[in-house]
């Protein structure tokens, strides 16, 4: 079963169009949604949560069409963290607990208290006096404290220092140890996605440029470095993207489609994304 199934999703804002987005998040997996700022990641997440209207397409979340009346109940099973925490600024963590236990049916006060203690968040301090890291930790604590089956995280780790990010990524990894748990994680920090994701979806200029299993991507693609003249010996169909200067050339290629005489280097997810963005073409 898929935790999220998106098919032919389209949303037009006039000057920006998110078009023909189709991908799935298999149950028990983490899918990383990557793309530059303004590529359409947050719009996709809003469409998944049905907080904005769509022009076309269908979305199923945990097996339920997100436009149906049953979706409101499904939200009990979804933990959401947005790019900001958006809690009323005068509320403390203790107050947030009082609100959330009356919001989510399976709210677990002990779990929440555990996260508050683990994240070293002051219980009585107003939210407005929290640092950005503390605010995001509170949002993550809320998302994890109502026994969710799916986490939808929109830039949840952006703006956090590497140590906090690492701690939070570990938490997400722990969450998916339960095979019934899944995560959709949107970020433009590709290294975070490479660290924990099973699948990668790359949205570029409102289009889905790539959706693939991460390990397969890293196995299938490679980087070659050579002179511009040598680059012409590589079949055009094998080249995903290239950077050519007067004296050197670098290309992202399909490993299986080029001769073994070429020396290939292991590529990172960031290489793949950057080459794809540079070439502005689908694969």
């Amino acid at each position: 079963m898929n935790a999220i199934e998106i098919s032919g999703l389209r949303k037009s804002y006039g000057d920006f169009v998110l078009d023909d987005i189709s991908f799935c998040v298999p149950e028990g997996s983490i899918l990383g949604l990557v793309g530059e700022n303004g590529a359409g990641k947050s719009t996709t997440i809003k469409l998944i949560m049905n907080t904005i209207s769509r022009d076309a397409g269908t979305v199923k979340v945990l097996g339920v069409d997100n436009t149906s009346s049953a979706f409101s109940g499904v939200k009990d099973d979804i933990g959401v963290v947005l790019d900001e925490a958006y809690f009323p600024e005068v509320l403390s963590a203790k107050n947030v607990n009082s609100v959330m236990k009356r919001t989510y049916r399976r709210w677990d006060e002990k779990t929440f208290a555990g996260y508050i203690s683990r994240f070293r968040l002051p219980e009585a301090k107003p939210f407005k006096d929290y640092s950005r890291g503390m605010k995001m930790k509170l949002a993550i604590a809320v998302a994890l404290s109502h026994d969710p089956k799916l986490l939808v995280l929109d830039e949840a780790t952006s703006g956090l220092d590497p140590m906090i990010r690492d701690e939070i990524l570990d938490l997400f990894n722990d969450f998916t140890r339960d095979p019934g748990h899944s995560i959709l994680l949107s970020s433009h920090i590709v290294s975070d996605l490479e660290k924990i994701c099973d699948y990668i979806a790359f949205i570029h200029n409102g289009r889905l440029a790539l959706c693939e299993e991460k390990d397969r991507l890293l196995e299938e693609y490679a980087v070659v470095k050579m002179s511009p003249a040598e680059l012409e010996d590589i079949p055009e169909s094998a080249i995903i993207g290239k950077k050519v200067s007067k004296y050197s050339a670098e290309a992202l290629v399909r490993r299986g489609e080029i001769s073994s005489v070429f020396h290939t280097e292991h590529c990172t997810l960031e290489d793949i994304i950057l080459f794809l963005a540079r070439e502005d073409r689908d694969i």
Binding site: T51, V80, Y104
Partner: peptide, 11 residues
Amino acid sequence: SKWDMLASMMP
């Protein structure tokens, strides 16, 4: 606080 944006993601 843009609470409505967060609440729209809740049940």
